[in-house]
Each structure stands twice: as C-alpha cells, then as structure tokens.
Design a binder for these strands. Structure first.
Lengths: 236, 236
DNA sequence: GAGTGGTCTAGACCACATG
DNA sequence: ATGTGGTCTAGACCACTCA
C-alpha cells in the first residue's frame, strides 16, 4: 500500500487524468479549493501536488484564471533523465539496442578520475549501438565501476537499458547526471557504424551519472546523428 | 519599496550570503524554525524560499540533518535562460559582441511560421559574432518581429544583449524558450567567421523564445565552436 | 533523545482575470 | 462582483539523523 504522501497521490491522479485524456490540452483543472474538497485535503496540499506538475511543465498556472494543461507534450520529459526512446524523441518507432562490446578492464586514468576510482580498480566498458527503425542513430560508450555491478559484463541488459539493469539487478538507482553537450567529427569507425560520412558532424554528450549525492555510477560518451536533435526547455 | 513577496526577499538574502561567502560550500543553513524566527515569518514561508534554491541546485535538503550549500557552482545556472557569458561558461573572460548584420525585411515563410506572423509581416534580422578573449566563439542569427521592437535595426544593443535591449527599450520580458540542439558542418562563411575549417563540426542551437504563454519573441539559430560545450544537469 | 526536514491543517487576505 | 491563483500564518505530527 501507499506510504506515499497525499500530494504525490494527487499528483499521480491528475497526471493520469491528463495521460488518459480525461483532461486534455488547454483544459482547465478544477480550482484548488475544488480539488481540496474532492480529495478531502487542505488547499496547501493540493498546491504541493500542482507545484510538481508545474515544474515538469505539465500544467501552467494563470493567476486569476485557473490552472491549465500544457499544450506541448514534446516538452514535458526534458531536463530529466529519461529512457533512450524518450530522449531521442522518436515516439513509437522501433528502437533497438545492439551491444558492440562488453568487457571488464582496469580503468584508464581519465575514466578512473571521473568515477572517483583508485588506480588499478576495474570498470565495465559497454558499447551500444542504438537503432531507430533499423537505421543507426547513436553510439553509446559507458563505463561503470566494477564493484557496483560485478556481473554486468556477463549478463544481459533489461530491455537494452543500463539504468534499468542497474536498478533491478543491483538496486542502484540513478538520481541525477551532469552533461556536456558538444559536436565532433565522426571518426572512421563511428562513421561506418552510424552510416554517416567520415568527418561528418555528430552531436556528442559526455555524461556523468550519480546515485547518491557524491557517488558516480556511470561515465558515458555518446555520439548521435544530427537529425536527432536534443530538445530542451529553458525558464527565465 | 519591494512589492516582492517575503519568500523572495529571503531567497535573495540567502543567495547573497552564499555568493558573498558568508555561507560556503558544504555549510549547513540555519534550520527552518531558526530562519523563521530570524526573519519573523512562519516556517512555511521559509520553506518556500528554500524550495526555489533547491530547484536551482544551490542547496540540498537532507532529512533529519539539515540544508546544505551545494558544492558545484558550475551547475547552478543551467536549464535557465542566461546571458551569453554564463551560457558559454567562460567566467571572467573578455566576451565581446560584433554585429555583422542588422536589418528589417519581410519574414521568410519558415521564420514567419515559427514566429506566428502573417505573410508579408516584417522582422528584424540580427547577426552577431561573439568572441571570447578576442577569439571567435559563436555566431548567432536572430529574427525578431518588427512590431515588437520597431527601432531594433537602428539602435544599439544594451551591452550586446538582445534580451536586455528588448526588456529595457520595449518592456518585452523574455520568460521561457524551447531549444533544439544538434551538430552541423561549418559552411564556408561560418568557417571563415569562426576560424574553423570548412566542413568542421559546430554545435547548433535553434531557439524559440517566448514572452507570454503563446507569443514568440525571437527565433534564433546559433553555431558554436565545439570547445565550448553546453553544460546541463538532469534529475531523475 | 533532541533536532532536522517532510507533510499537513484550516483558516486568512491579496492581486488579478473574466464575465 | 465573483472566482482564481499567490502569499502567509501558527500551529501539528511524523520519519529520519546524529550525538
């Protein structure tokens, strides 16, 4: 059963009403006092639920008017860690993962440093090629501390997802990440794997993922074809 | 004076204490009841102030322990609209703006569409080259509806900043933006302006900036040298 | 066990948008 | 004029951390 705070229950209820089409784009939510009455809670608790939806841009508040369901679902899942399928924004296309390499090795110095490992400690290196409808879309190289997921190099991934695997097999939940986004020219190997001309432009991301406040879980480099831009939303 | 809500005053006070080094990285803030007493407000109001600092990753809360100043100032200003200097993350380097073009014209169809303009309506096109310590770093092409800022093509920008100019001259405050980030090969013109090889990789951003909920203020394309990566932070 | 943040209540007054 | 969200109060109990 629950254990969930009430505002979280309310948040999920509202979210599922939106996802299920009970509340549609542009619709006004019931007013805060109204929701408070419906759920039998105080208005501050309702506000707490709505606060979360506002942070995720699912709804917007308009003072004096009401709270409305946001128009653009494509901007909802951004600035958040998300499964590759959502990140690349291809909707219901056929997304597959092809593992090109998976092995244990002693961490190279630069990798060890960013993962806060000591010299000589091992890591698992994982290289995945992601395809969309059969066409290569992105290449991902991940480094995970061996101590965190000892059998990672010998086990299959849960649905191609490293984060799901870490969570379900080793109870390591990813909490946040920092990213550096840039561009680079495709190397010969990248070009052939991704089906782009050698020297052609690729989006690059270097990501360091954390579980707790200070413990890195994964260092990842990725190269993505430029026709899959990253969508972001910025607030003032 | 003010008109500012109390929690905003408290937020700014705490922020300036952190910026000024009164509260340093890793320090614990006074407890919420303590702050409430200091500022003579209720605890919920203090929490509202701290909520904002948490969203911006300036502090973290630890249940049962306290609220602490975050370690990494470099991840604070992200996922937010920020001046070019902050966005490119060069600290106190010498950032300059060179205007390469500034003129009024009838909006091209694709620009008109994204700015929600009718056929035949005018826009101001602004092309800026940004340099860091004298070296070219980024090229920015902006399209602004003529009706929004009639004299933009004939007036100087406030410190090279389009957003500051729009705000100070025409009272148009930028509220949020959506971005598409990708990569592209430098054209011959871009290559010569940015000092990179023709065909070399550049980070590209297409940004649509809004003032109110539905009114676009600017469509911008930018090309940035890859040695200035974009920093982002993602939450789970 | 004392202190912290997490949650929640049942009110209140205000500024603002809309009919 | 009415209803909306924005702000704020003065409490309360809880789960958790840490000495």
């Amino acid at each position: 059963m629950s254990g969930l705070p009430i505002y979280e229950v309310i948040r999920r209820d509202l979210l599922s009403q939106i996802r299920d089409g009970v509340l549609r784009t542009g619709d006004r939510l019931p007013s805060e006092p109204e929701l408070a009455a419906q759920f039998g809670v105080s208005r501050m608790t309702v506000r707490q639920a709505i606060d979360q939806l506002v942070i995720d841009h699912v709804v917007v508040r308009r003072r004096g008017s009401g709270t409305y369901v946001t128009s653009a679902p494509r901007y909802r899942r951004l600035n958040r860690l998300a499964p590759f399928r959502d990140e690349i924004g291809v909707g219901d296309a056929d997304v597959r993962t092809e593992i090109r390499e998976r092995r244990e090795l002693v961490a190279p110095p630069d990798v060890a440093e960013r993962l806060l490992l000591k010299e000589g400690q091992k890591v698992v290196r994982l290289v995945r090629l992601r395809t969309v409808d059969g066409e290569p879309a992105a290449l991902q190289e991940s480094w995970v501390p061996y101590a965190l997921a000892p059998n990672l190099a010998r086990e299959d991934l849960v649905e191609g997802s490293l984060y799901r695997t870490l969570s379900e097999r080793w109870g390591v939940a990813v909490k946040w990440a920092e990213q550096q986004i840039s561009a680079a020219a495709a190397t010969e190997e990248q070009a052939s794997l991704l089906g782009v001309p050698m020297g052609g432009p690729l989006m690059t991301i270097v990501r360091l993922t954390f579980s707790g406040a200070e413990s890195p879980v994964e260092l990842a480099h990725s190269w993505t074809r430029p026709e899959y831009p990253l969508l972001t939303r910025l607030d003032a």
